[in-house]
Amino acid sequence: MNGATPKVEIRNLRKSFGTKAHRRTVLHDICLDIGEHEVVCLIGASGSGKSTMLRCINMLEPVDDGEIWLHGTGGAVDLAEPGLDPDPIRRRIGMVFQSYNLFPHMSVLRNITLAPMKVLGRSAGDAKATAMHLLQRLGLADKADAYPDQLSGGQQQRVAIVRALAMQPELMLLDEITAALDPVLVGEVLNVVREMRNDGMTMVLATHEMGFAREIADLVCFLQDGVILESAPPAQLFTEPQHAETRDFLARVIASGRL
């Protein structure tokens, strides 16, 4: 895509849940290239496998088969390799969740500095300086000592993004990060994503915000029943979808007023 060097190469990724008797395959032979500094949006109905795909990339879900190559300065690693230690991988990949997953017993600042200090071994002063710098950029500096439940949903989600960014990740995975927010608060979170894009962050988003996907994505993938039915630049996918299913999905999205 755009000739960029791939950051992540997914090859024949397969994932299923359940026992042997009741197996439900949620990802069928997924193949996808994510270029460096590229933004890829995964769209599709709930249950189509978007979140599972992100969780597989962050090794939160063990995969059944296939390869997920993560390229970086130290060469390439296959994240699907059985027995691979997930911790060194996860510190290179930031993830933001739909439900924020902030730690409610810690202040905003502590939420952000915990991992840099415990995982990267940064000093308290160093970690705090980075955190404050990021909070300042997102207009949250005055919330550093607040606790998560004292913040609005939009503020909590921005803190969650700062928490992930404080690890200085090479790749960000955003799992429906605006799905739990009321429409007024969605904008402030999406602005942060725009800024990350302008900074050249490589990102994979699972999203229901079609307008936003259209604006920000380099590549949009439409998933249905665990298969990438169609992937194309947004201008193409949203205006001339090739598959009947994609057309149908987009028609329903338009009918619900979300595009």
């Binding site: 962050n58 939160l60 997930p86 911790d87 060194p88 996860r90 510190r91 990949i93 930031g94 993830m95 969740f97 439900s99 997953n101 902030l102 730690f103 409610p104 017993h105 915990l114 991992a115 415990k118 995982v119 969650a160 928490r163 992930a164 690890m167």
Partner: peptide, 28 residues
């Protein structure tokens, strides 16, 4: 489980997750 996912996604080990994220909340 989302608290564990949040902690592990930041690269915290299982022990660190238990010590800094799960136990303090459970104790309360």
């Amino acid at each position: 489980e989302s608290q564990r996912a949040g902690a592990r996604s930041l690269g915290l080990t299982q022990t660190q997750t238990m010590r800094h994220v799960v136990l303090p909340q459970a104790a309360r």
